[in-house]
């Protein structure tokens, strides 16, 4: 049995090593964002917040941050709205061509973002919608909508189908049942979807790089900085970006797992 314990410990150590590999780049960016040296190396050049100050003072970074916030907010709201309607349709209706319907939603994230970017640029450029913030919003909705749809669909599958039918029997119209039964039940998933799609849009660099023209978003700005030179500013912005996206993902997780307030066992639907 001693051999069993050693084997088990070895596997666990290996798992933590793999996690270290996954998180090493994230930690590195944090550590060196506070390094006084321009070229990140050991020994550390001492604690400094000057890269943050420089990043905040950079007008181009400020502008791109503003663009990112606009894009993330708008695209997450649209994606969640459309994702909700599609999830409800999938939950309630069976119809001819449903597999095509679902494929339409879920295929975009499986296509490499660079290819999506080129395709979007070619199309939006032709119809005169390229190079604007709304181009990025349109493209990000395509890409992030399936995430919202999946989350809300998951929530709907936990719902008792009789509840909506009971509301209809009691005389509620379909719209009213949707508003008073379905939406309240899905609310955690809806918020969760909002956070998650925001996180997706907030970090998306490739599609935005192609379609944003001169209206760069923050990830595009980072890409351009990376192409130019070694700049510790990237670590500073990167750390902030990590904090924002991790917060969004964690919020999405927490909200999704939350039960509706005040629901005892008896009241749960």
């Amino acid at each position: 049995m001693k051999a069993d314990r050693i084997i088990s410990l070895a596997f666990k150590a290996y798992i933590w090593l793999a996690l270290l590999f996954v998180f090493a780049p994230i930690l590195t960016s944090f550590v060196f964002s506070f390094d006084a040296n321009k070229f990140a190396a050991i020994p550390w050049g001492g604690f400094s917040t000057k890269w943050y100050a420089e990043a905040f003072a950079d007008p181009e970074i400020a502008k791109s941050l503003r663009n990112t916030v606009i894009v993330a907010l708008s695209s997450s709201i649209l994606a969640t709205l459309i994702g909700f309607t599609a999830a409800y349709t999938d939950y309630r209706y069976d119809f001819f061509g449903k597999r095509v319907y679902l494929a339409l939603a879920f295929i975009p994230p499986t296509i490499p973002v660079i290819i999506l970017g080129v395709a979007m640029l070619v199309l939006l450029g032709r119809i005169g919608l390229s190079g604007q913030l709304h181009s990025v919003i349109i493209a990000h909705v395509v890409y992030s909508l399936p995430f919202a749809m999946a989350l809300i669909r998951l929530r709907l599958s936990q719902m008792n189908k009789d509840l909506e039918a009971a509301a209809w029997n009691l005389g509620a119209s379909q719209w009213r049942a949707l508003k008073e039964i379905i939406i309240p039940f899905c609310l955690p998933a809806i918020f969760s979807a909002l956070f998650l799609t925001k996180a997706v849009s907030f970090d998306e660099y490739a599609i935005a790089w192609f379609v944003s023209g001169f209206n760069e978003t923050l990830p595009v700005r980072i890409l351009i900085l990376l192409q130019r030179e070694v700049s510790p500013k990237v670590n500073a912005i990167g750390s902030l970006v990590f904090i924002v996206s991790m917060t969004l993902v964690m919020l999405a997780q927490i909200v999704f797992l939350m039960r509706e307030p005040g629901s005892g066992k008896g009241k749960r639907i």
Binding site: P25, S29, N235, G238
Partner: peptide, 12 residues
């Protein structure tokens, strides 16, 4: 990690 910036991780 899938919801954090791959660009920044590559830079790290």
């Amino acid at each position: 990690p899938y919801f954090t910036s791959y660009l920044v991780r590559a830079n790290s």
